[in-house]
Design a protein around this nucleic acid. Structure first.
Lengths: 250, 250
DNA sequence: CGAACACTTGACAGCCCTCAACGTGAGTGG
DNA sequence: CCACTCACGTTGAGGGCTGTCAAGTGTTCG
């Protein structure tokens, strides 16, 4: 069931594990709700809107390129990658999404998903019908503002990736990005698991898998980090950030 | 006056050249207004919101990186480029904006413009205060939907650029993109002016200016197009589209 | 235990960048 | 009207980075 197309999925609704007022603390919208002092009725409306779906397992397709766009989803657990397959059969990874981040926003224009979304491990989602959350956004300015912000941020991310950077810079920026996003959610900033394959990283950074291997090896040799299979420890965050700096702060 | 930072600009308000009900036909929002059967009072509100600013002249800076974000702007005439200067002094061109297109959306997240906006020729703008249009969007669903759509489209554009494509593919996709965007506004699809310098095209496509020159020359030699300085005529749209296809339709 | 897969390492080649020189058209001032 | 300047664009030669191809290693799973 869990590899049916996401929009048509007859959702496997999970037991509700958040009460109406605290809502999911990992949700991308929680900050908007709390910081804007959203009133209880608005919060309740948002809470009614959400469907908890999952679990998806590694390799499951959450939605497919070409599916009609109906919903966006906040990741509650696990990692999601979005990717396109071009007509030459090459995979282009567009992004990785960690808990608290929202996937599917690029489908608004065109009314169809422009890419596949694939679970990299066990994934739980909060699904929001886009027509419904749009209507809610007209009544709750905090929701609208958060949607605008999330969309705008994705433009910035895609733009960073588009620059012509060296392989060292790309890998460094990728590691710093993961470090910051994970630490923002309470995980360690210096030691974490790469939940994606080398090939996924390579297709995301527009490098060959061999190049990713070589760069990581080189960084380990000069003492920047230690990498063992999919486990990474960043030893010299300052120098890695310096490498990534032209990308992350252009 | 016209090279003052855009958000702080004391706008040189132009004579209003559209009546309230037809509004600017070149405006990015006109389609949203008309197709959604926006009522007259809503249209009047949008019309009151807009400030016609300009003209800016070639090289003028419309807004600067780091300026506080206050407004988005629809291009009414001319061409705008957005760009960043990295710490090594290299320019990264993020996008070109033609009449009817909206610039400034990527500044929503962060509340500051992440890039400069530069006029490439004589530019006229419709400026919309973002806080005000956000409020209006809560009352007029068509406006909200149009903003969502524009934001989402920019993600798609940035994503296309991020792929690892050959120089031929990049230049072909650039030409096809210009052709489609200009023809959608009523201009010729096969013969148009490149309003930007070779260096701008190169910095946009992440190529060296010399490479852009060589690719255009090669395309002319095989009969795909004719290029003379900044004037281009596309002779074989089908084959150019075939080159660009992996990018434009991944 | 064997097979499939992910990852690593090495050799080589190709694409594109860099550096350099030259050509050309627009604007300026005499 | 002409010479000059300068930015822009083109063309050529050479080199570096990264992709491609190939083989080898280690791990997981049936």
């Amino acid at each position: 069931m869990s590899n049916l197309p996401f929009p048509r999925l007859n959702p496997q609704v999970l037991a509700d594990d958040g009460d109406e007022l605290t809502f999911c603390s990992t949700c991308a919208f929680s900050q908007a709700c709390l910081s804007h002092g959203m009133d209880k009725s608005a919060l309740r409306e948002l809470h009614v809107l959400v469907e908890h779906v999952g679990p998806y397992h590694a390799g499951d397709r959450i939605f497919a390129e070409g599916d009609p766009f109906e919903a966006i989803a906040a990741v509650r657990a696990g990692t999601v990658k979005t990717r396109m397959i071009d007509r030459d059969g090459h995979e282009h990874v567009l992004g990785f999404y960690f808990p608290g981040e929202v996937v599917g926003l690029s489908a608004i224009d065109g009314h169809r998903y422009p890419c596949d979304a694939i679970a990299l491990d066990t994934v739980m989602l909060c699904r929001f019908s886009f027509p419904k959350i749009s209507v809610l956004a007209t009544r709750v300015p905090g929701i609208q503002a958060e949607l605008f912000r999330l969309l705008s941020r994705d433009i910035g991310r895609a733009t960073q990736l588009a620059g012509d950077w060296s392989s060292d810079q790309r890998v460094a920026a990728f590691l710093i990005g993961m470090s910051r996003r994970l630490s923002a959610r309470g995980f360690s900033a210096t030691r974490f698991q790469l939940t994606m394959a080398r090939t996924d990283i390579a297709n995301y950074l527009r490098l060959a898998p061999e190049t990713v291997s070589r760069v990581l090896r080189r960084m380990q040799n000069v003492g920047l980090l230690v990498v063992d299979r999919r486990e990474v420890e960043l030893l010299d965050l300052v120098r890695i950030e310096a490498l990534a700096a032209p990308i992350r702060r252009v």
